[in-house]
Simulated assay, not measured.
Amino acid sequence: MNEILTIAEETLVLHRHPRIKNETLQAWDSADEYLINYFNENQLAKHLNDDGQLLLINDGFGALSCYFQTFNRTVISDSYLSLNSIKLNMQRNNCPEDNILLQDSLQEFPRNVQVVLIKVPKTLSHLEYTLQQLSKVISKETIIVAAGKVNMIHSSTLQLFETYIGSTKTSLAKKKSRLIFSLVDQVDIPEKEIPLTWEIEKQGWKIHNHANVFSRNHLDIGGRFLMDNLPEGDFSKVVDLGCGNGVVGMAASEAYPKAQITFIDESYMAIDSARINMLKNLPEEQTEHARFVVNNGLVGFKAGCYDLILCNPPFHQQQAITDQIAWSMFNDARFCLVEGGELVIVGNRHLDYKDKLERIFGNCELVTENKKFVILRAVKEY
């Protein structure tokens, strides 16, 4: 795996985070390279004065933040992992920290923006939210360039730029990536509520979903399966690990009304959605025992603190398919469980989670299954 990015007279050492042994994926892609080269070849630095800022949106692991280290810049991401990776890679490359502001996607966008570089996010809803917020802080002089893999840029992608920014065109493809250029000339910008709300009839809950929440348009069928098959027991400290909009943790709160429920996700939008949903749908005596944590899984949590961890593990990190997140979640879960504590997960049948759990816990029980999913249970033993 290549850790050295040499581009436009700069050399950077960049790592993906969390770091794993035998990593096969690098911490930047051709879209990062395309943006950097375009910025230099077209002298976009001349549009940045002392009072203005460079705005970087969805920088994955810090390639853009580190390369543009001499400019005053704000970096916006919904990912805790991305923001943490940026910090670590800046330290690795001795980048100054006094000219950069890192913020999550739910914070207000800066208003003194002169050049904007965007990595196109995975979902259209996340892109629409980003462009909607961006449209509020730009002027006709703002330079806006986006980049993404060719297979992520469709007519619907370009239409969103047209709707919220203005006249839009694309570049030729290079190394399977493409640039998007938008001129700020749109005056009739729609006032649209991008968060979605829908109801879970069985519980009578109205579920709020920010733009970048997993399965934001409907109840995830894997999550539903886990909600319907929660373990019986007198649990007091429960974790909804990778909580998304929080519905599994909310079901746990109803099943174990005296338990403290901790919701954990690396998406700021997910955690805010889970918080809203818990407060709006469950009684105060249950919500007052809830905790909401933006974090890389259970990293940094104390050993032997929880007696039940519930998880619907993701198998993507940004655009990459990987089982490393599941591995990390399972290992950290074992560390954080009390003796006799349980990890209960739901996963697609084709994913080899049973073997992983047996290797980590020394045991794994098939609780139930259907045509698409399995629910597995592992117990921490000594």
Rank of each mutant, 00 (worst) to 15 (best):
V13H: 06
P18V: 11
P18M: 14
R19A: 10
K21F: 05
Q26N: 12
A27W: 00
D32H: 00
N37A: 05
N40Q: 09
L44K: 00
H47T: 14
G52T: 14
Q53C: 07
L55W: 04
L55D: 12
I57E: 03
G62W: 00
A63R: 01
Y67E: 07
Y67S: 08
F68M: 12
F71H: 10
F71C: 07
I76V: 15
S79F: 03
L88G: 09
N89I: 09
I100D: 05
L106A: 09
E108H: 04
Q114M: 08
V120E: 00
K122T: 10
L124M: 14
E128G: 04
Y129K: 02
T130D: 01
Q133F: 00
S139L: 11
S139F: 03
E141I: 00
V145D: 04
N151D: 14
S156I: 04
Q159L: 09
T163C: 01
T168L: 06
T170D: 08
S171M: 05
S171G: 11
S171I: 08
K175P: 03
K176F: 08
K176N: 15
S177H: 07
I180Y: 06
I180M: 08
V187P: 00
K192N: 03
K192Y: 02
E193L: 03
W198N: 10
W205T: 15
K206M: 11
N212W: 02
V213R: 01
L219W: 02
L226C: 08
M227A: 11
N229D: 08
N229K: 06
P231K: 02
D234E: 13
K237D: 12
D240G: 11
C243E: 11
G244F: 02
V248C: 05
K258N: 15
I264N: 06
A270S: 13
S273H: 11
S273G: 14
R275K: 15
N277R: 09
N277T: 14
K280L: 11
N281T: 12
E284V: 10
E285N: 14
T287I: 03
V293T: 15
V294Q: 10
G300M: 10
G300D: 14
C305W: 01
Y306I: 13
P313V: 13
Q317H: 05
Q319G: 10
A320S: 06
D323V: 07
I325P: 09
W327I: 15
F330R: 06
N331K: 13
D332I: 12
G340C: 02
I345W: 01
N348G: 10
L351F: 02
K354I: 11
V367K: 03
K372S: 14
R377S: 15
V379I: 15
